[in-house]
Simulated scan of single mutants.
Amino acid sequence: MAAEDRIKATAKNLEGKVQEVVGELSGNERQKVEGKVKQMQAKAMHEQENLKDDAKKFIDRA
């Protein structure tokens, strides 16, 4: 499940980067900001998976 979630986060990050570039090239500030927001959401998703991994490692050591 974690790998699937990481893939979703990576896809969201790429989508956000593309959207940001399109917004920048077209002069559409809203598109650009929405792209940045998606990238931030993807980063949060990755951090969530990192925390899950760390918790699992901690539990496995106990």
Rank of each mutant, 00 (worst) to 15 (best):
Q19M: 13
Q31H: 08
E15F: 04
K52P: 00
M40Q: 07
I59S: 05
E20Y: 11
V18L: 15
N50F: 14
A11V: 07
K38E: 02
L51Q: 09
D54K: 15
Q19V: 00
D54A: 15
R6C: 04
K38G: 01
A44F: 05
V33F: 02
G27M: 05
D60N: 14
D54T: 14
G16A: 03
E15C: 04
V21P: 00
E24Y: 06
K43G: 02
N28L: 04
K32F: 03
D5L: 13
V22I: 15
V37Y: 10
R30L: 11
K56S: 09
K12A: 11
K32R: 11
M45R: 02
E29V: 11
T10A: 15
D60F: 07
F58D: 06
V21Y: 12
G35M: 02
D53N: 10
E4Y: 04
L51C: 05
S26N: 06
R61Q: 14
M1G: 10
I59K: 13
D60M: 13
L51Y: 05
A3F: 09
K56W: 03
E34I: 03
A3Y: 11
M40A: 14
D5T: 01
R30M: 06
Q19A: 12
Q41G: 00
H46L: 12
E34H: 05
H46P: 00
K57T: 11
N50E: 11
N50C: 07
A42N: 01
K12W: 01
M45F: 04
A3I: 09
V33C: 00
Q31G: 02
Q19L: 13
D54Y: 14
D5F: 07
A42C: 03
Q41I: 05
